[in-house]
Amino acid sequence: MKMSEAIAGMPTPPAGAPMRPSVRQREAAARTSRTLVRRRIVNNIMVALLTLSAVIATLPLLFILFHLAKSGLSSLSIDFFIKDPKSVGESGGGMANAIIGTLIVVSVGCAIGLPIGVGAGLFVSEQKHTRLATVVRFLADVLNGLPSIVMGIFAWQFLVRPVGHFSAIAGGIALAAMLVPMVTRTTEEMVALVPHALREAALALGYSRARTGLVIVLRTAMGGIVTGALVAVARIAGETAPLLFTALGNQFRSFSLSKPIAALPLQIFQYAVSPYEDWHAQAWAGALVLIAMVLTISIVARVATTSHGDGGSD
């Protein structure tokens, strides 16, 4: 820093230069030394502003977590995890139905979305020079940017409307539709990191392309794929909008894929916008549980990536 400032202050030629500095050069030098102070002040102000923006940007997260802990913990009890909702006016009850429902809907989403996403990602990476791969990669990005509510409309139009009732399976498929493009891109990126030499080594052993892809390439990339998939699953687990059109919600415990089913985000929404104090408390508790689930998955994924990145020799 000091060195560069010193240089900035010396725009005139160094001593021993054949010509004396011209008037214009001397003026420039004077101007430079006057502006140097101002430039340093501007620099310091900008650094302060940037630091401030970092502080402000992290505040909402801390506030949200603080309020969740404060309002959520007080209404959290064992009952919350093992009992179903009571009707309005009765105190107590829990969201066991919604927790079970979320697990079911997310499982359905994963069962459908993960294999498709990983397979599509494998294709995009293995056949990356084909036109189809380019198209799929681009469309996956486009799908990733679409509002989740659109996935809900899609599942509603094809899976709810024709059969005439809402269902867990429709909710799962809406979530799978969100999962596919996310997992496709993660898989593609992670598979692209596998050195080409490993593929060649496997092929040279007499491995078929199928075995090379599945046993060598996919397995080598698996750590990263799992991480990316976890982040994606965390995201769909907290989704509400697509479920409004598909799973609908249910005050009772349901294990049926063909019936409406409760989900934690849905229940939080319904309780939060209700006029009842009891339900508000339940909504906070639900949000705390949901965020604990989501953040645990995210942090596990993050830590896994970090150790993966530091430990792997290739």
Binding site: P60, L61, F63, I64, H67, L68, S71, V231, A234, R235, A237, G238, E239, T240, A241, P265, I268, F269, A272, V273, H280, A283, W284, A287, L290, I291, V294, L295, S298
Partner: peptide, 17 residues
């Protein structure tokens, strides 16, 4: 982490805080 927080949780916080 802000991106990991579900939309409905933001909504809940927004309504009450």
């Amino acid at each position: 982490l802000l991106a990991a927080i579900p939309s409905v949780v933001y909504g809940l916080w927004a309504i009450f805080v």
